[in-house]
Amino acid sequence: MLRKIARNDLLNVAGGFLAMYGGVAFFCFLFLVQRWIHAAPKVPEPSHGYIYAHNEHGGITYFSAFQTTSCALLFATSVPLFFLGILISPKRNVRYRRSTLSAGANWDGDDPKGLYRVGSLLGAVAAPTLVFLVGPVFVRALVSSGVVLPFR
Protein backbone atom coordinates (compact mmCIF):
# COMPACT_ATOMS: atom_id res chain seq x y z
CA MET A 1 0.00 0.00 0.00
CA LEU A 2 1.41 3.35 -1.04
CA ARG A 3 1.66 6.06 1.52
CA LYS A 4 -0.28 9.19 0.63
CA ILE A 5 2.16 11.93 -0.32
CA ALA A 6 1.34 15.31 1.16
CA ARG A 7 1.01 18.27 -1.18
CA ASN A 8 3.68 20.13 0.78
CA ASP A 9 6.16 17.27 0.34
CA LEU A 10 5.54 17.06 -3.39
CA LEU A 11 5.95 20.82 -3.81
CA ASN A 12 9.21 20.79 -1.84
CA VAL A 13 10.71 18.05 -4.01
CA ALA A 14 9.43 19.63 -7.25
CA GLY A 15 10.51 23.13 -6.22
CA GLY A 16 13.99 21.98 -5.24
CA PHE A 17 14.33 19.95 -8.43
CA LEU A 18 13.22 22.76 -10.75
CA ALA A 19 15.25 25.47 -9.01
CA MET A 20 18.46 23.43 -9.00
CA TYR A 21 17.87 22.05 -12.50
CA GLY A 22 17.40 25.60 -13.81
CA GLY A 23 20.52 26.86 -12.05
CA VAL A 24 22.78 24.03 -13.15
CA ALA A 25 21.37 24.08 -16.70
CA PHE A 26 22.16 27.80 -16.85
CA PHE A 27 25.78 27.10 -15.91
CA CYS A 28 25.87 24.36 -18.56
CA PHE A 29 24.60 26.99 -21.01
CA LEU A 30 27.39 29.40 -19.99
CA PHE A 31 29.98 26.64 -20.35
CA LEU A 32 28.77 25.68 -23.82
CA VAL A 33 28.55 29.26 -25.07
CA GLN A 34 32.07 30.08 -23.92
CA ARG A 35 33.44 26.91 -25.42
CA TRP A 36 31.67 27.41 -28.74
CA ILE A 37 32.59 31.11 -28.99
CA HIS A 38 36.29 30.32 -28.78
CA ALA A 39 35.99 27.65 -31.48
CA ALA A 40 33.57 29.52 -33.76
CA PRO A 41 34.75 31.27 -36.92
CA LYS A 42 34.72 35.07 -37.15
CA VAL A 43 33.33 34.98 -40.70
CA PRO A 44 30.50 32.82 -42.00
CA GLU A 45 31.51 29.40 -43.30
CA PRO A 46 28.49 28.10 -45.23
CA SER A 47 30.36 24.99 -46.33
CA HIS A 48 30.60 23.88 -42.67
CA GLY A 49 27.21 25.27 -41.62
CA TYR A 50 28.46 28.19 -39.50
CA ILE A 51 26.02 30.82 -40.78
CA TYR A 52 24.13 32.03 -37.69
CA ALA A 53 25.64 35.23 -36.32
CA HIS A 54 26.14 35.42 -32.57
CA ASN A 55 27.01 38.74 -30.96
CA GLU A 56 28.90 38.30 -27.71
CA HIS A 57 29.49 41.76 -26.27
CA GLY A 58 30.33 43.23 -29.65
CA GLY A 59 32.33 40.31 -31.00
CA ILE A 60 30.57 38.51 -33.84
CA THR A 61 31.10 34.78 -34.28
CA TYR A 62 29.11 32.31 -36.34
CA PHE A 63 27.35 29.28 -34.90
CA SER A 64 25.91 26.20 -36.56
CA ALA A 65 22.18 25.44 -36.49
CA PHE A 66 22.79 22.92 -33.71
CA GLN A 67 24.73 25.41 -31.58
CA THR A 68 22.31 28.31 -31.96
CA THR A 69 19.27 26.12 -31.28
CA SER A 70 20.95 24.54 -28.24
CA CYS A 71 21.81 27.93 -26.77
CA ALA A 72 18.35 29.35 -27.44
CA LEU A 73 16.61 26.40 -25.79
CA LEU A 74 18.92 26.29 -22.78
CA PHE A 75 18.65 30.00 -22.11
CA ALA A 76 14.89 30.12 -22.68
CA THR A 77 14.19 27.22 -20.31
CA SER A 78 16.82 27.33 -17.56
CA VAL A 79 16.06 30.77 -16.15
CA PRO A 80 12.25 30.37 -16.04
CA LEU A 81 12.56 26.89 -14.49
CA PHE A 82 14.80 28.30 -11.75
CA PHE A 83 12.24 30.95 -10.85
CA LEU A 84 9.33 28.50 -11.15
CA GLY A 85 11.06 26.19 -8.67
CA ILE A 86 11.40 29.02 -6.19
CA LEU A 87 7.82 30.13 -6.80
CA ILE A 88 6.19 26.73 -6.20
CA SER A 89 8.18 25.75 -3.11
CA PRO A 90 6.06 26.09 0.06
CA LYS A 91 6.72 29.12 2.20
CA ARG A 92 5.71 30.37 5.63
CA ASN A 93 6.13 33.67 7.45
CA VAL A 94 6.08 35.58 4.17
CA ARG A 95 6.80 39.30 4.54
CA TYR A 96 6.37 41.67 1.62
CA ARG A 97 8.03 45.06 1.15
CA ARG A 98 6.78 47.61 -1.33
CA SER A 99 7.81 51.11 -2.15
CA THR A 100 7.48 53.37 -5.14
CA LEU A 101 10.58 52.04 -6.86
CA SER A 102 10.98 48.49 -5.56
CA ALA A 103 9.32 45.43 -4.10
CA GLY A 104 10.65 42.41 -2.28
CA ALA A 105 9.77 39.52 -0.02
CA ASN A 106 11.34 37.41 2.70
CA TRP A 107 10.12 34.01 3.81
CA ASP A 108 11.01 30.86 5.69
CA GLY A 109 10.87 27.55 3.88
CA ASP A 110 8.09 25.18 4.91
CA ASP A 111 10.12 21.98 4.69
CA PRO A 112 10.20 20.07 8.00
CA LYS A 113 11.27 16.80 6.32
CA GLY A 114 14.18 18.29 4.34
CA LEU A 115 12.72 17.25 0.98
CA TYR A 116 13.76 20.47 -0.78
CA ARG A 117 17.39 19.30 -0.53
CA VAL A 118 16.47 15.90 -1.96
CA GLY A 119 14.80 17.60 -4.93
CA SER A 120 17.77 19.91 -5.33
CA LEU A 121 20.19 16.98 -5.41
CA LEU A 122 18.05 15.22 -8.02
CA GLY A 123 17.90 18.41 -10.11
CA ALA A 124 21.66 18.90 -9.89
CA VAL A 125 22.24 15.37 -11.18
CA ALA A 126 19.49 15.54 -13.82
CA ALA A 127 20.58 18.82 -15.42
CA PRO A 128 23.95 17.80 -16.89
CA THR A 129 22.53 14.40 -17.80
CA LEU A 130 19.66 15.93 -19.74
CA VAL A 131 21.71 18.78 -21.22
CA PHE A 132 24.62 16.67 -22.46
CA LEU A 133 22.96 13.30 -23.20
CA VAL A 134 19.28 13.85 -24.04
CA GLY A 135 19.54 17.45 -25.24
CA PRO A 136 21.73 16.83 -28.30
CA VAL A 137 19.37 14.12 -29.56
CA PHE A 138 16.41 16.47 -29.14
CA VAL A 139 18.15 19.42 -30.78
CA ARG A 140 19.35 17.31 -33.71
CA ALA A 141 15.77 16.13 -34.24
CA LEU A 142 14.55 19.74 -34.23
CA VAL A 143 17.24 20.90 -36.64
CA SER A 144 16.67 17.98 -39.02
CA SER A 145 12.96 18.89 -39.00
CA GLY A 146 13.85 22.42 -40.11
CA VAL A 147 13.41 24.13 -36.74
CA VAL A 148 16.31 26.46 -35.99
CA LEU A 149 15.94 28.82 -33.05
CA PRO A 150 18.10 31.95 -33.28
CA PHE A 151 20.32 32.92 -30.38
CA ARG A 152 21.92 36.29 -30.78
Score class of each variant (00 low, 15 high):
Phe27Tyr: 09
His54Glu: 05
Phe151Gln: 06
Val94His: 08
Val94Asp: 12
Phe63Lys: 01
Ser78Tyr: 03
Pro90Asn: 03
Lys113Thr: 10
Glu56Ile: 08
Tyr96Leu: 11
Asn8Gly: 12
Arg35Cys: 08
Leu122Ile: 11
Lys4Trp: 08
Val94Lys: 07
Arg95Ser: 12
Ser89Leu: 12
Val24Gly: 02
Pro90Ala: 12
Arg95Gln: 13
Thr77Pro: 05
Arg97Ser: 09
Pro128Phe: 02
Ala19Thr: 04
Leu81Gln: 02
Ala124Tyr: 05
Ile88Cys: 01
Ser145Phe: 11
Ser70Cys: 11
Asp111Thr: 09
Ile60Pro: 03
Ser47Tyr: 09
Ala25Ser: 08
Gly23Gln: 12
His57Asp: 13
Ala65Lys: 07
Ile5Gln: 06
Asn55Ile: 01
Leu115Trp: 09
Pro90Arg: 07
Ala105Leu: 12
Arg7Cys: 05
Val125Phe: 08
Ala19Phe: 01
Leu11Phe: 15
Ala126His: 02
Ala103Val: 09
Tyr52Asp: 08
Ser145Ile: 07
Gly85Gln: 04
Phe31His: 13
Gly146Ala: 04
Asn106Tyr: 13
Leu73Asn: 05
Tyr52Phe: 14
Tyr21Pro: 13
Ile5Asp: 00
Ala19His: 00
Pro150Trp: 00
Pro128Cys: 02
Asp111Gly: 12
Phe138Val: 14
Lys113Met: 11
Ala127Asn: 03
Ala103Asn: 09
Phe63Tyr: 06
Leu142Ala: 04
Leu84Ile: 15
Gly23Asn: 12
Phe27Pro: 04
Gly58Phe: 02
Tyr116Cys: 14
Arg92Asn: 02
Ala103His: 10
Val24Ile: 15
Arg152Ile: 10
Val148Ala: 02
Pro80Met: 02
Phe31Val: 05
Ser47Leu: 14
Glu56Asn: 13
Phe29Ser: 04
Pro44Asn: 12
Thr100Arg: 11
Leu30Lys: 07
Val13Phe: 01
Phe82Leu: 07
Phe17Arg: 01
Leu18Pro: 04
Gly135Val: 02
Ser99Arg: 09
Thr129Trp: 15
Trp107Ile: 05
Leu30Gly: 06
Ala127Ser: 08
Phe31Cys: 10
Phe151Gly: 03
Arg152Leu: 13
Gln34Leu: 11
Val134Met: 15
Ala141Tyr: 06
Asn106Met: 10
Lys4His: 07
Val24Pro: 00
Ser120Trp: 13
Glu45Arg: 09
Ile37Tyr: 08
Asp9Arg: 09
Phe132Glu: 09
Asp110Lys: 13
Pro128Asp: 03
Tyr116Gly: 14
Gly146Asp: 03
Asp108Glu: 15
Thr69Ile: 01
Ala105Arg: 11
Gly135Ser: 01
Ala124Ser: 11
Thr68Asn: 00
Arg35Trp: 14
Val139Lys: 06
Leu18Gln: 00
Leu81Gly: 03
Ala39Met: 03
Val134His: 15
Ser99Pro: 08
Ile60Gln: 02
Leu130Asn: 07
Lys42Val: 09
Arg117Val: 14
Tyr96Gly: 06
Leu142Arg: 05
Leu101Ile: 12
Phe26Asp: 06
Tyr62Thr: 13
Ala19Met: 10
Gly59Ala: 14
Val148Glu: 01
Pro41Val: 05
Ala39Pro: 01
Ile5Thr: 06
Val125Gln: 05
Phe151Arg: 08
Gly22Cys: 00
Tyr52Lys: 06
Lys4Ala: 11
Val147Cys: 09
Trp36Gly: 02
Gly23Phe: 14
Lys42Trp: 09
Val137Thr: 14
Phe151Ala: 08
Gly16Tyr: 02
Ser64Ala: 01
